[in-house]
Design a protein around this nucleic acid. Structure first.
Length: 383
DNA sequence: GATCCACGGGAATACACGGATG
DNA sequence: CATCCGTGTATTCCCGTGGATC
């Protein structure tokens, strides 16, 4: 640490200034109101929903692109902007004439398939978004909920439902969304996923391709760190992270977030090279986005938190015992959960040398496939 | 009483390996 | 030498139960 940095640190310490002034700006799971550098994709999306501006339901559509290309950032921004725009005026999209005061208008609804995993959830959350009335969370059948959604849509102005994160393990597929909304009048939907349309059956004809980021990742890091840090992120470091991330904005932001966590916990007032290295090292290549982990059930998240404090390089069996001892779950259940998490890609089974018995199938160990420090930090914040 | 869903528990299946068999 | 078999684990799959909600 050179003298000027010492002085700077002392000054900041005295003034109570912290490295991170806004964690939310660095949060790789959160999106800005105005995504950086995706203007042409925005235009293509607006073309896809263009009939809306003539008060006509647009055809269903499919938005697709690789991991970390900003699909979620774009569609969340678009959905809320469109909904706000359309809430300002009544529409005549629906043929129904019943005049209801507050929710008699067209809605644009954003659904996260990571959280709306069943057909029940899809209806529940959609209905909740288009009505002011209380929508039951359980105790009522899926059919009943669909009927209620149908009549609500008929009396209001209809809806465009954007369903993000399609085709992930344990989540609904594009065809599940089609089946859910096909029987309903007054709904168009936009599916969002990674799968190329040629690998899907019965894809909507309207498609928007979101290509991977390229040079824009540096800009994203610059904008985010500008909002989140009290000291400018060195451009060299931004370039280093972007280069490593190879166009995946999620991974780049996770690395930046981790670097900030390390630097902050060391009391540093700026992000240094070592922080960047550590931040990058904690994000697995071709890993799973942190939000998928945050969307898991409370029990699963607890297991993953405890897993972080567990010994590495040991068998699943031993890991499960250790976690079970610190939770109120049985080791059998923990073991099953760990296996399930491995099946969905959140953990990966690895070869392990310890504990190999003479006979029988070889045990394996497990390794997280997501950015652990990011998850742990966000998990704490969101509790 | 109905409904959805998370848990727990355990049955069924897959795999590894040494030894037997063709 | 290639396959099959038996035994012991690891892993997957499935279903009943109970909490929470309406």
């Amino acid at each position: 640490m050179d003298l000027s940095e010492r002085i700077e640190r002392r000054r900041l310490h005295r003034s109570g200034e912290r490295l991170v002034v806004n964690w939310e700006a660095l949060n790789p799971v959160a999106h800005l109101d105005e995504p950086v550098g995706r203007e042409s994709v925005f235009e293509a999306l607006l073309d896809a929903v263009d009939p809306l501006f003539d008060n006509v339901l647009p055809p269903n559509a499919y938005v697709w692109g690789p991991a970390g290309s900003g699909k979620s950032a774009i569609v969340t921004a678009l959905a809320s902007a469109l909904d706000a725009e359309l809430s300002g005026r009544r529409t005549t999209i629906s043929t129904a004439t019943r005049a209801e005061s507050s929710f008699d208008r067209f809605h644009v609804v954003y659904l996260d398939a990571r959280r709306a995993t069943s057909q029940f959830q899809i209806y529940q959350r959609t209905l909740d978004a288009v009505t002011d009335a209380n929508v039951p969370e359980s105790g009522v059948g899926t059919t009943q909920l669909r009927e209620r959604l149908e009549s609500t849509l008929a009396s209001s102005g209809g809806a465009l439902v954007v369903v993000d994160h399609l085709g992930e393990p344990n989540g609904p597929s594009l065809s599940a969304v089609r089946e859910a909304f096909e029987p309903l009048d007054g709904v168009s939907w936009v599916g969002v996923g990674r799968t190329p349309p040629e690998d899907l059956a019965a894809v909507p004809a309207t498609q928007v391709h979101v290509p991977a980021y390229n040079y824009e990742v540096v800009d994203i890091l610059t904008v985010r760190s500008g909002l989140g840090l009290s000291n400018r992120l060195d451009h060299r470091h931004a370039r280093q992270i972007a280069e490593w991330a190879g166009g995946n904005a999620h991974d780049a932001l996770a690395a930046l977030f981790n670097a900030a966590v390390v630097a902050d916990s060391n009391g540093a007032t700026r992000i240094r090279s070592d922080d960047v290295e550590a931040g990058i090292a904690a994000v697995p290549r071709d890993g799973v986005p942190v939000d998928r982990v945050l969307a898991l059930s409370e029990t699963e998240r607890r297991v993953l938190e405890l897993l972080d404090a567990t010994e590495r390089e040991t068998t699943i069996d031993a890991t499960a015992e250790e976690i079970a001892a610190r939770s109120n779950l049985t080791s059998g259940t923990v073991k099953r959960l760990l296996y399930e998490l491995a099946q969905t890609g959140i953990l990966e089974r690895i070869q392990v040398t310890v504990g190999r018995e003479a006979a029988g199938r070889h045990p394996s160990g497990i390794e997280p496939q997501f950015s652990v420090p990011t998850f742990v930090r966000l998990q704490e914040r969101y509790q």
